[in-house]
Design a protein around this nucleic acid. Sequence first.
DNA 1: AATGAATGAGTTTTCATTCAT
DNA 2: AATGAATGAAAACTCATTCAT
Lengths: 212, 212, 212, 212
Amino acid sequence: MLSAFRKLPETKQEAILSAAAQVFALKGFHQANVADICHKAGISNGALYKYFENKQALFVGVFDYAVQIMVSELFQKNLDRNASVYETVRHIFEDLVALAEKQPELLMLYVNIGSCSMNNVAPPLSGKIEGEAKRFWLELVRRGKANGEINKELADAAVAYFIDNHVSLLAYSLVSKHFESRFMVYFGDEIGAMSAEAAIEIIMQSIRMMLE
Amino acid sequence: MLSAFRKLPETKQEAILSAAAQVFALKGFHQANVADICHKAGISNGALYKYFENKQALFVGVFDYAVQIMVSELFQKNLDRNASVYETVRHIFEDLVALAEKQPELLMLYVNIGSCSMNNVAPPLSGKIEGEAKRFWLELVRRGKANGEINKELADAAVAYFIDNHVSLLAYSLVSKHFESRFMVYFGDEIGAMSAEAAIEIIMQSIRMMLE
Amino acid sequence: MLSAFRKLPETKQEAILSAAAQVFALKGFHQANVADICHKAGISNGALYKYFENKQALFVGVFDYAVQIMVSELFQKNLDRNASVYETVRHIFEDLVALAEKQPELLMLYVNIGSCSMNNVAPPLSGKIEGEAKRFWLELVRRGKANGEINKELADAAVAYFIDNHVSLLAYSLVSKHFESRFMVYFGDEIGAMSAEAAIEIIMQSIRMMLE
Amino acid sequence: MLSAFRKLPETKQEAILSAAAQVFALKGFHQANVADICHKAGISNGALYKYFENKQALFVGVFDYAVQIMVSELFQKNLDRNASVYETVRHIFEDLVALAEKQPELLMLYVNIGSCSMNNVAPPLSGKIEGEAKRFWLELVRRGKANGEINKELADAAVAYFIDNHVSLLAYSLVSKHFESRFMVYFGDEIGAMSAEAAIEIIMQSIRMMLE
DNA sequence: AATGAATGAGTTTTCATTCAT
DNA sequence: AATGAATGAAAACTCATTCAT
């Protein structure tokens, strides 16, 4: 079943996953329309069902695709840098902003699984990305403690979780209207419209305070 | 239209809103079944459409109801206390946990509007609760600065936003499986299952560090 | 579910069951089109699913309806007659022919469950009608033995089964083209077209020979 | 078109016809899945349509194949025997039982065309096998009358039809669940489960009574 | 000759909403 | 005011058949 999909030319795989990601991101799983996705992807309805058993399997495939890109664009890209913890985190924030501009649908998929209406499907999906994130943060925390950037008395997992929370928060802020309008409630007076740079600055401040 | 609803006996209004809250919370807006809600509420399908113009209007009504209870149970209840900032925040956390046990559907509704699939309806709903929250936190921050509990150099809005983030985070952790499983990725080894107390402790720690 | 159906005015129940019987009879279960049935019955697609859980449940309902009419038109109608066995059987044959003219779809439904493609649903359906038939035939056989019409050495069940076979055979001959053309292979030369009367005569002969 | 099929190696022809016979028998014409058949036969979907114009043509081909085997295994095999009518019939019954064990799908195909949902395709198919059967029975009846085994006053065609009915009945009983459960309604008390031997005995009895 | 990926019309089933009673 | 039966459009999924390779 999935093997049929893997045999397709990369560009077609891309087209399908990207189309599906956009529709799922925008409409959510249930409201997403399979025919819509097929049309956007330029394939027939029947073809899709040769590649994925059903809508749910397609969703899982799309989520895997999103996770893979997110991990690559956020973590792997920032893995080897000899940068300080703050610099690394800031780079990731910047990459996140770039990703939110280029492929917001990927972040939206991630945000959507936080909804309680996804409670029955979320856990395995969550695991896929959070496992990768944790590994990255823990390594960074170790480096930060070695550098003296991070207070050695703080528990590693707690710091990793704390950073992850802030990255998540930024991701949510970048693509969820609820988070955007929540941000504006607090900073709308000072800042005309929510800018990613402003959000980053505010979140970086939180982190700096916490870790020193 | 809505006036017809307001004329109903309070218990019936309650029954309808509570039934709808549960179904919307569990299934999400699109997957929620109107007939299901009516059945749970003990009214006829037709009756519902005398009280609310359509499913969407019902959802808004239900969200208002949820906001009202959340504001009352979390903020108004903790308004007059002469307690310290930390104590107040902790009390709110405890009340949040209690609410998550008694009426998890209310928090779930709140969590669900964070999803990007709700982007087109979220902003007015977000405003309703976040406005109340902001007012409360700003007052608390002023008190904290007066007390010397909060560093006076920090911007009020930033601190308020920071606290609100953590309260939201706890709310998400309590009802969203994604957040629960994310929490477990980080603390699953130390803590057998996610306990509200553990979550509170970890979050309180973040706040204390930040504010001093 | 079914109670909703039973609450309908009799004429509407009739319209639905009759429409469904015709379509199922003509096309078979799988090829029968639910929308077709609804259209023929003068109801909406949605309505049907208020009365029957799904296509299969509708089929069972229709089969029950067919059995009820068949039992009533063939057996109950010929129950009290003080007639001889032969006369009774002949009457049943004649009623069968009349039924095949008025509502051939009922006999067709019965014939269709004999197909191996119905093997997984047939047994419970078979039981419904064959149980009634057996009871009737056994009573008739007892009467026949008392009358001296039936050889007392023959086993009751065997005779009942034998008669039932011939009634079934006539039913099949009246509505199945395979059975009709099979009949014509044997008697096409003598008889221009298959006539019910001719079929009855030939089958009656078999029975008479057997029983004496 | 069909010539392409005939040019295939015998084993491949066999594989295709046998696979198709099994699927058509089990599922019925409409529910049978062409891709399934191809897979079972070890050929590609496209290949099938080189050999047969469409599903219907394949079905006809398969039915011919089934008829050919049935005629050979039941009639030709019992043609030259110098046996009595009863013995011949009994042998045919036994061969039928053997066939039902080795290739039940062939009998099932035969049984399935009795269904009214096959009314539009049945007649030409019926003719193919019933013509052969008639010829065989008429010859047997002539022999039986010459032997004195069969009452000379009985019409040849009627006797032939009568015997054919019973052979059909046995075939139906062996592969159709409806007929099996119908048999059990009558004899379930005496006989634990339906055995082919018991069925033969009961049917033979009918025939003997009839013909003497 | 053979493949098997692709098509797209067709099917069952659901459900927000209406309206006669 | 309240009911709940009825609607019918929409949506996921299937499959016989075709055709480029």
